[in-house]
Structures are given as C-alpha cells and as structure tokens.
Design a protein around this nucleic acid. Sequence first.
RNA 1: AGCGAUAUAGCUUAAUUGGUAAAGCACUGGUCUCAUAAGCCAGAAGUUGAAAGUUCAAAUCUUUCUAUCGCCA
Length: 682
Amino acid sequence: MTQNPKRYTITAALPYTNGPIHIGHLAGVYVPADIYARYLRLTGNDVAFMCGSDEHGVAIPMRAKKEGVSPQDIIDKYHGIIKKSFNDFGISFDNYSRTSAEIHHETASDFFKKLYKDGEFIEEVTEQLYDAEADQFLADRFVVGTCPKCSYEEAYGDQCENCGSSLSGTELINPKSAITGNVPTLKQTKHWFLPLDKYSDFLTEWIVEGHKKDWKPNVYGQVKSWVDDGLKPRAVTRDLDWGIPVPVEGAEGKVLYVWFDAPIGYISATKEWATREGKDWEPYWKDEDTKLVHFIGKDNIVFHCIIFPSMLKAHGDYILPDNVPANEFLNLEGNKLSTSKNWAVWLHEYLEDFPGKEDVLRYTLTANAPESKDNDFTWKDFQARNNNELVAILGNFINRVVVLTHKYYDGIIPEYTGEYEELTQVKHFPAIISSSIERYRFREASQELMNLARLGNQFLQANEPWKKIKEDPETVKGIMYVALQIASAIAVLSEPFLPFTSNKLKGILALDADLSWNDISTKEVLIPAGHKINPGELLFAKIDDKEIQAQLDKLEATKKANEAANKEVVPQKETATFDDFTKLDLRVGTIIEAEKVRKTKKLLKLIVDTGLDQRTIVSGIAESFTPEEIIGKKVTVLANLAPRTIAKVESQGMILMTETPEGKLVFVNPDEDGVNNGETIN
RNA sequence: AGCGAUAUAGCUUAAUUGGUAAAGCACUGGUCUCAUAAGCCAGAAGUUGAAAGUUCAAAUCUUUCUAUCGCCA
C-alpha cells in the first residue's frame, strides 16, 4: 500500500456512450468515487479525479448503423447528456474528457508505439471471418452462429450467452454476418497481441501475494483465478473502421481494441486537465508517492487488474493502482438494469423529476450500495430513506436546533456554560468516518454520519432545553451551544456524502467556509458564541406516495412498451401446400421423465410417450419449467423431425411451444380428457 | 461448461483472522412536545440458502447441492 501519499489520482470507469447514465452506474462507481474524492480534498489532499466518455468499440458503429446515423452522432449525443447530468448531480470530476479527443488519440497512439518499439507485442496473422458485401471483418458481436459447446443457435462471435463460453468467431458453426446476414468467408489478417503470460509472475507477486488482505474478495478472487488458470496473449487490435488507427505500417483498416485505448483515457484526461490548470500531469501517473485508485463495476475487473496493469508495466514509466474497489451491480425493482430495455432510472430524468433532491438519490444509493453483493433499488426504499432518515433524523435535528436558537437567542450563539461530554464525542466522528471511507466502506461511513445526527437528537432529548428555558435559562445556553457545535460538525462531515445539503447547512449556520474535516477534532470551537446564524430552511422535504407512484407507473409503462415491442406479429410465411402439411407427423404425447441437461441453462432432456414409443426429446425450456412440474403433462410432438444431437444427447422430435410476452414458454397442449397418446393432429 | 463472488431478522447490512449472532429501517408498547404526525426509551423478531462432515465449540473450515450476478460489449 502506498503510505502517506503526496497526491491521489482517482479514476472512475469511463461510461460507454451508447446510452445515458443510470442509477446502476452511479451506485457502483460514480457516487463512491465522488465521496472518496471529496473526502480527500476536504482532508487537504492533492487530488486528480478523472473520468470521460468511452466512445470507441464495436457497439457504437453497430448502433449507428441500426439508427441510420453516424457513429459521431451517437457519441456526441450521449457524451453531452452524460457530461451535463454528472455536473448537475455534483460529481466533482476535476476533468471529464472523451476518448475521441485529439489528446487521447495522441496519448493512446504514443502508448502503443512505445510498446511496439520496445518489442512488447506479438504479431500474428490469423484467419478471420470476413463479410465481402459489407467489405468488413466481423469482429466480436458482428457475427452470430451456433455455439460449438452447447449448440445454442444465437451465440455471438465472442461469447455464447447460453452456456457462457468464450468463443472466437471462427469456432461458430454456421456463422452469419450480423450486418448483412451473409455467410462470411475466411480471410487472413494481422493482429498485435499483448503477451499477458509474460506478466504472470509480476501479477502474482503484486496482487496475489501483495494485496491478499486489502483488496475486496470479488476483485482478488477473480484476479487470482485468472492468474492461476494461466494467462494467454490477448489481441489489442481489431479489424474495424471506428476507433484509434493502429499507428504502425501495414495496419490500414485496423484500430486499437477498445479495452486497450479506454483505460489510457484516464491518462489523457489527466493531461488535458493539467494543461488547462497549468500543472504537470506526470507526477499523477509516474511518481511512486502518488496513490492511484480505480473505481469500477465488477464487469471491469480483469481489464483494470490484469490487462491495464500489464500495459503499464510493459510501458515501464507508470505507477500501478493501490486499490481497485470494484462494486457489484444494482437492480431496479427486482430486475436487472438494462439500457436497451429502458429498465432504469436515468440520471437526467431523475434530476428533472426531483429538482433539488440530488442528495436524496446520493444518500439512497450510498446507504444501499452494492458493495459486497448485488442490491435492489426500489422506489419504496428511496422514499423510506428520505422520510425516515434524512427528514426525520438529520433534517429534523438541524431544524430543532435552528428554530430554538432563533426563538431563544434571536439567532445568536449563546455562551458555553456547564460541561457536556458530547463535545468530546463529536471530536471522534472524523476519525470514525475516515476509517470507513479509507477502507472503501461508504455505506458504513454514511451510517456513521447519521449516528452523529442521532447523537444530536439524543442530546436534546436528554437535556430538554424547552423545559429548562423557564426555570434555568443559564443552563439552556450551554445546551444550545453544544447542539450548535454538533450541527456545525454535521455541516462539514456531510460534505462528501451530501454536498448540496452541506452547502445549504453551512449557509444557514453562516459557517466559516474554511472549516476542514480535521478541524472538527482539533478545534475547541466550531461556531463561536456571539456569531449570528441565518433564518432556517428545511434541508429535506417528505416525499409522498403520489410521487413514488408516478415513478412506479413510469416503470410499468416501460414494461408494457417492451411487451408490445416483443409482441410484434411475425409476418405470414410463404404458402404451404396440403402435401407440405401432411408431411408433418404431429402427435399427442405425455412427458414421463424430465431432467436438466448438465452444463446447459436452457435444456431439459425429456422422455415422452408418443403412443408409438417412448423417446428422448431435448427441449430448450429449462428457464420456464422445472423438471418436476412438467412430468405427466400432455404435449404436442412433431414426431418425424430428423433426429439431431443437442449437447451430446440425441433428440428424436420436437415439442410444440409458444411464448408469453414476458418470454415464458407455454405448451401447445391437447389437454382434454380422453385424448390418447399417439393420436395424430390434423 | 469452467472460474470468481454472493446468500445472515420483513428490508438493508455487521460479526477484527473457529468462541454469547449485532445494528439501522419497518413493526409493537411506552414517553416527550422544541421540531417536518418528527424525537427519545423499551420490546418482539433468526434452523446464518440446503444437506452432510471436522471440532469441546462453526455464520466462519471441508464436501456436495441450490439460487443470483460477473467473466463480451
């Protein structure tokens, strides 16, 4: 671990510009990163907090093609929305850049050239799938075909979504171009590979041995398993016309792999910032006394812990991350967030729907952050966090103090009389909260802040100034003095979590703007006697059921829209003659046995009594039914379908199915009393 | 598939390296009236995903399951 760093470089994962920012991105990456960055600045550290839009990769041109616009249109649109919403939400990036920026192209190019010159790459000519009509190599998702491992028919060129295998396009059976639908041909192409195997020892020493204790289990576990499995050279270039051109001779029509250029974006963003601020960027990336921390989601672990560090190591000039606190994922109302299905709470929409409530979302996402496992965001929980915690505990405490101060003393802080141990207790909070933040436990840290407000409420309750004001006004002075010190501590310590509220509260208390995190522990007086505070205003307002219902309705409408989109009726196929139809031998059968096919998610192996025989049929229905619930069911069987081996099991027929709008499969079933197995259907 | 992570009270989470399962919210009861029908005090709430094993002792270690997510963008 970097001890006593002179400066911090904090990065937050570059958002991909194929959609706006949603609560999943915020909870996983940007809110924790922002809390960390704000905390460090407040404790007097030199911080560079860097981010930017990731605008390369296959998905951008694919999406552009689909929408009939240029890739540039796509990235400009989303870069604009993303940048503005981050800014309005108070994410305090020192720079938010973009990978289409000239400085980034230059930086990434130079990085590649340095490794190339130093002989850090392996060059290899391989045969890749090529679509002659589109005049394009079919990288990753541009090709679809049958998975060689599980026979799933819609596997992509990089991965099969049914069994999860990592594939390469050339392994696919019956590959088809996702652009034209044509059958691709094989064509030779040259690519550059980073030999990750060369860095295996370095990664073992640095992470597997060096960060066993301080890195999160999900991060550490994944790195260890990759290293233990043996690393392989990884291609860092692609045949594509969107991205950063490979800056060497003979590489026309090739660009850097998006995962090669994207993390370099952190460096480019730092350069851009330093130029603007008149600073030197290099210490932030090259000085051993700099602590580098990458905030990411769990899907990015290998890139930030294996590939990028290997790149940095290969380059030789750069420091390595001190920690990579990857978060898990956030779900929304029980379902996975999905940009394509519009299943999300979009930041730019939230900011419109809930003006002035930036901190409510920040707090909810922090208190319910997916730090150790996937979590669920519900609007009901959002409402409860606001009404029961922010309003009732924190907001209410501040309001009590402010109202009483105006009522008893016309807003002027009274002299401290008596002796209260709460003044000492307050001094402990900076260290308590720091300890949580520095261990990347932001959820816990936010709860400690609430505990400070609880301490305030308990203090008032125990001392009852509203009672004593009549018979013992001198004592009340001391009580209110202490309560005001607590309120001041909250104003400062809430800044990383609730920056808008912190500002508002500092305004109400007319607090010294220079009051820092450590002052809360070291200064005897946070807000002095004789000082006048401003008229109060409520920090938080209750959110009523109507507002929550409106959001739930919005989600319900999305669900309906998705169903409607899925329901689009497939056009009628070409005419079949009666003879065509009679070729099909459709029969009634009964499922007598069912079990899951090992190593697949979707397949069930069924034994069906068809009246003719008992035969094995493999059916892709495991996600809709458990084996137990379908045993004994009467189903429609296509009996004379040519046998086919699926996942090593020979299937002798097909069960006729249809589907609900939600994608649940339903049997086409002849379930009327007195129908016998083997009866033909015509 | 394989690998990794996760599974603890209705909900969100703790449990410092095997030693009395602990908080907040919600709930129930009591109480106060300065405050946003807020607060404060107390209480109830658990077969720690399942099963087996190791041990004087298991949320924690082992084995086998199950479920969810990630490993491509």
